[in-house]
Amino acid sequence: MGSNMIVEARGLSHWFGDGEARKQALFDIDLALPRGSLTVLMGPSGSGKTTVLTLLGCLRGVQNGTVGLLGHELHGASEAELTALRQRLGFIFQSHNLHESLTAMQNVIMGVQVRPGVPDELARSAATQALGLVGLSDRLDYLPANLSGGQKQRVAVARALVGNPALVLADEPTAALDKDSAATIIDMLKRLGAERGTTTLLVTHDNRILDRADRILTLEDGRIVSIAGGT
């Protein structure tokens, strides 16, 4: 794997189901994500975008091919290794998935607390800063039920970024956001890429984002059919 590559997949194929119902979702995918880049993954429903995200996010085991992530091979990795690697990633889901019983601050702290040994004060300070970055400094102690849809999604973004992840995997992160909020989030991911080397792989149908992406990969029927803006 090249030293500048956060992710490098070779010959990645994946199947779902067994026996007669076994169906191939990905076909021989080659993919590399350079450090600090923002890559958009596009494609119609069922094209395999989500499968790619879950495989690169260590949420599924690699069946065929190789995937190098942060210097670790995922094919054959144990559950404990995958769990440890996930602590170095940031996830932004289409649905915010905030914990209803925790305040915005507490939800974001969960993104730091996953790493053992982080002092409480440091976790609080990082969470406060992350919520400030997404414009929610005045909503620290709000429960999700008292936040708007866009605010909840921004809390989810803060939770994904608070641990300073090496790779952010995002699924339609701007779907619930207005134009300005969406632009703020994407600009922030771009800025983190430039300042901290944070790499982002983002699944979206939002055309507002495309002109900000470093590269655009298009998947169809489990195959990469086009790469725009890079290799």
Binding site: A80, L89, F91, N97, V114
Partner: peptide, 15 residues
């Protein structure tokens, strides 16, 4: 009731 939140924590790396 909290399966989705727990799944999120699992994704974040909680064991």
């Amino acid at each position: 009731d909290h399966l989705r939140e727990y799944a999120t924590f699992k994704a974040m790396g909680y064991g």
